[in-house]
Structures are given as structure tokens and as C-alpha cells.
Nucleic acid binder design. Sequence first.
DNA 1: TCCCAGGTGTCGC
DNA 2: GCGACACATGGG
Length: 276
Amino acid sequence: MYGQADDNMKTMRISCKDFHLAATIESGQVFGFTKEGDAYEGRIAGKPVRLWQTEKVLHSTAEAGLIRDYFDLERDLDPLFAILQEEAGLSKTLPVFRGLRLIKQDSWEAIACFIISSNNNVKRIQGIWKNLSLYFCKGEGFPTPTQIAKSHERILRQLGLGYRAPFLLRTAQFLSTNPQYLETIRAEEYGAARERVLAFPGIGPKVADCALLYGFQRLDAFPVDVWILRVMRKLYFRNRSVPEERVHAFGRKRWGSMAGYVQQYLFHGARTGVIY
DNA sequence: TCCCAGGTGTCGC
DNA sequence: GCGACACATGGG
């Protein structure tokens, strides 16, 4: 009976215009959800949740307010769609995953996951996330900085982090002893916040922008990874080789406060082959 | 066996 | 400041 709690739980029906659950969860911005049939299972603000979508309704085992906030459902995406429609090459994404939204993740989890993401692939990042969750939290959510900090590099290596183990460990140790630090970052401007995040071990320009975008909702961040570099070169630089820094500045200037959203459509589009 | 994956740190010039 | 190069790990 207890094992079937999900089946007895009352489910919310959340009406939502322009929301694509699958694309949102599978676009490489979050790593802690697992697909169970047509549904996704994970945790939001520490609460277990099961989600699935039919027609224009999002079904959730967690309260609607929590879901609407987490998935940024209050945001009007029309300005974004207007941009994507205008950009040759990006409009192709709309018929396929219109309604992909940026998730408002926990800042520490985003920092940790994107330290792990460097020179790695999404499948393996998900695997490491699960290993961390199982080892530290009995599979119930993601470990806190303090939990990681009390651990050891050897343990993290056993969980699959490889050479990133000391990076995550040191970052966790710092945040464990400076628990308010992330909130001070949150209050800062993009440039200052970026400098702070860049100072963590294992975080360079790309991961810093991922952390700011996904963990601090800094929508003017524009992470440039290998996929973005490739597709941006093709679409805007006549396929010529361009420094990542230049692509970063180009994206931020061109799309401003929508740069992060455009980046997500670029990334998912490139990775799924919608944009070549 | 080599190359790639949501890159970063380090070293030599 | 810039360009190699190493770095764990698993899949193709």
C-alpha cells in the first residue's frame, strides 16, 4: 500500500499555454528526472513529484503553484517566439519543441551538476547525479554542500566523477562554510556574479554561464559549449572558426534578456538534429 | 584504438 | 596573454 502512494495521490491538472514538458526536461538543463513511461519523476524543492502531459494539460502530483514557478510557466514566451521566427535556422525549432522553458533550479545543484558536466556527456551526468543521490540521500534528492564536504575525493571518484572529484569537493567545502554566499551572488549584477562563480574550482566561462542561467535565473547568460559553437558558427559566422568568447558576446548582445532562452533552443535544436 | 562528450587547470613561451 | 596538453569515464 505504501509503495503505491503515487497511485493514491491526488493529481493536479495545470492548464498551461506554450509548455513542452519533454523538451524542457530532456534539453540538458536538469539531470535529476527519470522517465517512467509517459511520465517524469523527480523532486522539486525537495518534494517528490510525478509529471505528465496531455494535450494542453500538465498533470502533477505536486501543488500547482510550485510547478508553475519551477517551470517558469507565468512567462509570456511570445517575445521569444518572435525572435525565433525571425532568425533563419531557428524557426525550425518552433514546430518541434515550442514551449521548451528554462527551469528555475536550485543554485547549488546547478553549480554542482555543471562542474560535473565539463568534458562529459548528458547520459553520464545523469548517471553521476543518480550515484550521488543514492549514496548521500538514499535516492531522495541531491546532496547538500555539507554532505559532499564531509565526504572524500576517493568516494566521489568511486561515484564516477573522475578528475572533477576534487573540484566538486572543494566547491562544496567552501559553500558549506559560507552558507550565505550563493544568496550574495544572487543579489549581484551579471558581471560581478559571473566573477564570483568563475572563482570556484572546476568552473570556467561556459560552466559559469550555465550556473547563472539555470541556477540563478540570469536569462542574459549565454553558455557556449561545443554544440552552441558549432551551430553559431554555421548560422552567423559563415562556418568560420570563431573564439568562444566572441560567440558569447555576440549572443548576449543580439538577444539580450532572451539570450539564455535562445541558447536553450539552439542547444536542443542542434543536439536533436532539428537545426543541423 | 581512437574520438567524442554541455571544458577546465596547468604549464611553457 | 595565448596555445598545447592532460584529465576520468563510458559509448560509438
